[in-house]
């Protein structure tokens, strides 16, 4: 059956991407100059204000190597690394010693995931909705206004968009905080409100950033789909514009948009990292930047691996729900 083949292909591609990504993550930092253990030891020595004996240094070196999975030759290290990735055990963090990396990631991950899921979904829905109307009614003046939104938003670099939004909404109008302060403690109604309030600006910039492209490409797709014989025949059937726009044009034109979304997931994640840094948002991006700045290898490994894992998984999930929208794949040719 065709569907089974499709699923097997996607799952296979998923594991292949994970494997390649994780392997590159292992080798890339090893090409960088500097030795993390030496770094750490010199930090300890600087803090202690005295030099340690050679034996003490060697002892420290050995235990650190064990802790960070750096004993043995490259191949042994690689195998050990893979084993730890499978268990999602990245050892302790360097900067927050002895807190395990996995726990730090567990804390920051939901922030990023929550922000990204909401904004991606919103910008896809709103962007495609506007693009659909602009394309379906492309002969009308109002449609040109809608398209204009896309044309204006699309080419603006993300950081400029973010700065403009901050400038207007936070700095001039003072509607939102410049940097977020989240209520601590367990989940409560107030906490939810504070999260929504504080996340509004970063979310808004992400929606606006994703939006322009969706408007423009959906508009082009809708214009082309509108001329397809089945839409023309539906018109001759006497169906209403609403029926044609939604059931005939959108349901077909959204298929390439889902595929495009899958392909752009990596970039969306990229955008989120910038957002978190610009807005001091406590997600994975901030963690990753802190880790890179402090030379915290384990934390860096962990956050990169988690990133690869989540982007690939999101893509897989989209790929797997795609057949729900396209009967030609669901039911075979």
């Amino acid at each position: 059956m065709k569907l089974a083949q499709y699923i097997v292909q996607r799952v296979f591609a998923y594991f292949l991407v994970l494997f390649v990504g994780i392997t590159i993550t292992f080798f890339l930092p090893r090409l960088m100059p500097g030795d993390p253990i030496n770094n750490y030891i010199s930090q300890v020595q600087a803090r202690a204000g005295q030099s340690l004996s050679a034996e003490a240094v060697q002892q420290l070196r050995d235990s650190l190597a064990e802790l960070y999975g750096l004993q043995g030759n490259l191949f042994t290290q690689y195998i050990n690394y893979l084993k730890r990735v499978v268990r999602l055990d990245f050892g302790p963090s360097f900067t927050y010693y002895p807190e395990p990396v996995s726990e730090i990631l567990l804390e920051s991950m939901p922030w990023t995931a929550g922000l990204l899921l909401t904004t991606t979904l919103l910008s896809w829905l709103i962007g495609n909705g506007i693009g659909l109307i602009a394309g379906y009614y492309n002969k009308r003046r109002a449609a040109a206004v809608l398209e204009f939104i896309g044309i204006v938003l699309y080419p603006i670099p993300y950081y400029i968009l973010a700065l403009v939004v901050i400038l207007i909404l936070a700095y001039w109008l003072g509607l939102f905080p410049l940097s977020p302060t989240f209520l601590p403690g367990p989940i409560s109604w107030n906490k939810v409100v504070s999260i929504l309030y504080n996340s509004f600006l970063p979310a808004l910039t992400l929606v606006l950033a994703g939006f322009g492209w969706n408007v423009l490409s959906m508009k082009a797709l809708a214009i082309a789909t509108k001329e397809d014989s089945y839409v023309q025949f539906a018109r001759l059937k006497g169906t209403t514009d609403r029926t044609r726009m939604v059931n005939y044009v959108f349901r077909n034109a959204m298929l390439p948009q889902i595929t495009a979304l899958v392909l752009s997931l990596g970039f969306i994640f990229n955008g989120a990292l910038q957002t978190e840094i610009i807005f001091s948002y406590p997600g994975l991006g901030m963690t990753m930047r802190a880790a890179a700045g402090a030379g915290d290898y384990n934390l860096l490994y962990g956050s990169i691996v988690i990133t690869i894992l989540s982007v690939a998984t999101a893509a897989l999930v989209l790929d797997l729900i795609y057949p729900l929208f396209d009967p030609r794949i669901r039911l075979g040719r």
């Binding site: 014989s229 077909n252 009967p327």
Partner: peptide
Amino acid sequence: MSSLNPVM
């Protein structure tokens, strides 16, 4: 061949 909506 093409006068029917492929997804309905």
